[in-house]
Nucleic acid binder design. Sequence first.
DNA 1: GTTAAATTGTTATAATATAACATTTTGTAA
DNA 2: TTACAAAATGTTATATTATAACAATTTAAC
Lengths: 131, 131
Amino acid sequence: MQNLSKNQQIIFDLIDKSPEPLKAYSILFNVQKRGIKAPLQVYRALDKLVEIGKIHKIESRNAFIACQNSSCQISKATAFSICESCEKVTEINNSNLSKYLTSFKDKNGMKYNKYNLEFFGLCKKCVSKKS
Amino acid sequence: MQNLSKNQQIIFDLIDKSPEPLKAYSILFNVQKRGIKAPLQVYRALDKLVEIGKIHKIESRNAFIACQNSSCQISKATAFSICESCEKVTEINNSNLSKYLTSFKDKNGMKYNKYNLEFFGLCKKCVSKKS
DNA sequence: GTTAAATTGTTATAATATAACATTTTGTAA
DNA sequence: TTACAAAATGTTATATTATAACAATTTAAC
Ligand SMILES: [Zn+2]
Ligand SMILES: [Zn+2]
Ligand SMILES: [Zn+2]
Ligand SMILES: [Zn+2]
């Protein structure tokens, strides 16, 4: 693992200490005091961080979270649970699931080298609130 | 199944006969001759069509395809394969997979009621081109 | 027929993301 | 330690995706 560049480190630190996924322009707003002024600077760092597996993009939310699973730094097999009420997102680290999906072969004969899975529902807290 | 409204039908027909996922503004361009002039008209129809399961959104591509699986008209358990070379997208209809994911329970105790899975790789055609 | 719900029409604007180009920094190897 | 290539940065402009707000019309149910 190479070290992160200045902008990459600033942006990773912000995402890593956030309890929730962050959106690109919210990141931009938060790092402007540290000298990062343009969207492109943010997107470039995000692209790199995703590429090296330090963060993941939550596709259904256009938001980014730090990898919570030190073993998935290749970013090619990701799974998340998303609460549709409070929007809490958790990275799922379940070897049964990842084995199942990594070895999954469909009848179309396609060779998969990557997947992304997003589960939606209500987290424990939000379930109990509703009852 | 209720009938579709005029705009919904126009937009569904276009998506349904497209061999590839369509993006919202490409849809807009294509239906302007039929009287649909504004992005919001397209997005409203898309929202409804997704809600009733006639189309699905491919989140990683911001594009829409017709449901290829008549049995999933609730749109709560979707899986796709995406070729990273030619961008061909296919809806996966595999009961083993859907059973596994629908009954999946993680240790976080969350109750899932929906999921979306996207596999990435090279389709048969693109694999053979590279060899 | 009356009413409520769904759909449509329209203008403006917000939010997300990339193009293009110039410069600087960093790592690698003669 | 200089020379070169790769990576990262800085900057302006623009493209793409999506929603807010409000008014009018159509549809379906009672
Ligand atoms: Zn991870
Ligand atoms: Zn919640
Ligand atoms: Zn479907
Ligand atoms: Zn292909």
